Computed example of a mutant assay.
Amino acid sequence: MLKLIFLGTSSGTPTRQRNVSGLAVQTVLGADWFLVDCGEGTQHRLQQTPLSLHDMAAVCITHVHGDHCYGLPGLLASAGMGKRTKPLKLIAPLPVWQWFEATRRLTDLHLPYEVEHVDVEAQARVHQAPGLRIERHALRHRVPSHAFRVQVETRRMRLKVEALRTAGLPPGPAWRALQNGEDVPFNGAVLRSADFAEAQVETAAAVLGGDNAEPALLRAACQGAQLLVHEATYTQEALDKVGPGPMHSSARLLAEFAQSAGVPNLVLTHLSPRHQNEDGMAALLGEARAHYKGNAFLANDLDVFELDGAGKVTVTRGRSDE
Rank of each mutant, 00 (worst) to 15 (best):
A206T: 04
R219Q: 14
A232R: 04
D211T: 12
L208H: 04
E214P: 04
Y234M: 10
A232F: 08
E214G: 03
H230N: 05
A238Y: 11
V242F: 02
E237F: 13
A220N: 14
P215C: 04
A232W: 05
A251N: 12
A225I: 08
V229E: 01
Q223I: 01
G243T: 06
E231G: 14
C222G: 05
V229W: 06
T203Q: 13
L208E: 06
P215Y: 04
E231C: 13
S249C: 13
G210K: 03
M247K: 12
L218K: 06
A238E: 14
S249N: 07
A220T: 15
L208A: 03
A216K: 11
M247R: 14
D211C: 04
G210N: 06
P246G: 02
H248I: 00
P244F: 10
Q223P: 03
A220P: 00
G224S: 10
R252E: 15
G210L: 02
S250R: 06
A213I: 00
A232G: 11
L239C: 02
R219G: 12
A221W: 09
V207Q: 08
N212E: 08
A220I: 02
A220Y: 09
E237S: 15
D211R: 02
T235Y: 09
D240S: 09
Q223T: 10
P244M: 06
M247N: 11
P215N: 05
A221R: 08
D211Y: 00
C222N: 11
L208N: 04
G245Q: 10
G209Y: 00
G224Y: 08
T235Q: 08
E237G: 15
A251P: 11
V242L: 07
A204S: 15
G245L: 14
Y234F: 15
R219V: 07
P246W: 06
G210T: 01
Y234E: 11
P244G: 08
A221T: 10
S250H: 01
L217R: 15
G209V: 11
G210P: 03
A206H: 07
P244L: 05
G243Q: 08
Q236W: 05
A221S: 09
G210C: 03
L217V: 13
M247F: 00
L217M: 13
L217K: 12
T233F: 00
A216G: 11
N212Y: 03
Q226K: 07
N212F: 02
S249Y: 04
H248K: 12
S250E: 02
Q223V: 12
A238V: 07
L239Q: 15
P215A: 08
D240V: 10
A216Q: 14
A225K: 09
T203G: 02
